[in-house]
Each structure stands twice: as structure tokens, then as C-alpha cells.
Design a protein around this nucleic acid. Structure first.
Lengths: 105, 105
DNA sequence: AGGTATAATAAGTCATAACTAATGATTAGT
DNA sequence: ACTAATCATTAGTTATGACTTATTATACCT
């Protein structure tokens, strides 16, 4: 459990979550994203940098534009982080449900 | 996509991630958690409140102590949030892998 | 070459959230 | 009743990260 999650850190910010969701809906340029939000283009760029470095998005240059896509790498890492708890929690939950009368240990 | 994730907001903080991981390893009291970290008991309590309100953990009173457990509710919501992108990303990724020569659109 | 658009970076600002010490309610034991 | 332990809450402090404006490198068109 020494491995912190850069993805969770990145998505802790609401503006970055919205950016991620926009890109998740379909690939977008910085300008498109900026038009959808109420922050400056520069703020969007800075947020995209954080998302890029945590491997949640990747940039594809197209002329003067950069088109941002979801990056499966960070998604997979985040999913792995989550699955650690999900399987354990599910197992404990199933025990409770299947044996509701055996609460004593 | 109007539904923001309280769970991601909660886990955006590194101290709260560590607390969540400790509780995920096994149920723990506030005192136990406090001993494992380098912040005050008061800080731990405040963080646990955030985790509780986002349904990532639940408290079980035991005498003067509170034992904290993982709450499957918030985990499930977080997983659902993530799965929205995972399935789409996987589909797009598979398309790329299965047809590597058709990069033109 | 000149002009426009795009996006990354730098430098500065400041609100807020993570932290602390203090407090008080509750529990448990003698 | 008294004492100790536990933990939630309150009130105060301040570092940091999200924001802005400004700048600049690159791409593209005429």
C-alpha cells in the first residue's frame, strides 16, 4: 500500500473532473474544452497538464491544435486501485448477507 | 454528466487516501488510525467525517470507540463513475488494436 | 513576409482546505 | 463520585493550489 494514486489526486479537483468528463464524451481540443467551461484557456492548459502527467489523458497534435483523448493507462491504474477494496468489500458484504444469523465470531 | 463524484473529491486528499487504505486493510478505530499517521487525532476525525459523508466509510460505535469500516455504497458509486469511461475507452482501444492499418477516417 | 489562431508556460494573487490546540460529550472502570 | 480514555466539534492559522494576466513558440493562411 505504498503506492499512492496520482489519478485520484488529479481527479480530486472539480474542474479537472469536468475536463476529464468532456474528453471522455469525445476527443476535444483545448479551445473546445475552454469554451465549455468558465475558466481561462490557460487554466484549462494547466489542468490538462496534470491530467496528462497522471496518464488520464493523452494529447494528439493536429496542426496548431492539440486534441485530447482519454488514456487507458491511468484509467486502468485507477481501476486497479479501486478493485483492491472492491473485492474485499464485496467478500465481507457477501458473508454478511449469506449468513445474517452468524454475527458472532 | 451532471453528477459530480463526492468520492473522488474526498479521495483527492493524500491523508484521506491513506486513511481509506488503512480502513480498507481492516476495520479500525480512530485511535488506531491516528497512531499510524503523523497528523493529530482531530485531523483524523475531520477526515473521517468527509469520508463518512461521501459514503466511503461507515462508523460502528463500540463503547467509547468508533470502529470504521469500508462502505460499499460510495465504492460502488465510484466504480460506476469510472466504468462510464472504461467501457468506452476499451471499445475505442479495441478498435485501434484490431484495425491498426485503418488510421484514416 | 505578415497576420491570425492555438496552446504551453511564467509570474503573481488569494481563498480555502488541511492542519493545530482546545473543548466537551460519552463511555468504562474503580 | 471520580478518573481516564475516546472521539466529535470548535476556533484559529497558513501554505498551497486554482485561478488570472501576460508572454511566447508553433502552425497555418494569404
Amino acid at each position: 500500500m505504498a503506492k499512492d494514486s496520482a489519478q485520484l489526486a488529479a481527479l480530486g479537483d472539480p474542474t479537472r473532473r469536468r475536463i476529464f468528463e468532456l474528453v471522455g464524451a469525445r476527443p476535444r481540443t483545448v479551445a473546445e474544452i475552454t469554451r465549455q467551461l468558465t475558466v481561462s484557456q490557460s487554466a484549462v492548459s494547466q489542468h490538462l497538464k496534470v491530467l496528462r502527467e497522471s496518464r488520464l489523458v493523452r494529447a494528439e497534435p493536429k496542426g496548431a491544435s492539440n486534441v485530447y483523448h482519454i488514456d487507458p493507462t491511468g484509467l486502468g491504474q485507477m481501476r486497479a486501485w479501486l478493485d483492491r477494496f472492491w473485492s474485499d468489500t464485496l467478500a465481507a458484504y457477501k458473508l454478511t448477507v449469506e449468513k445474517p444469523t452468524e454475527e458472532k465470531k
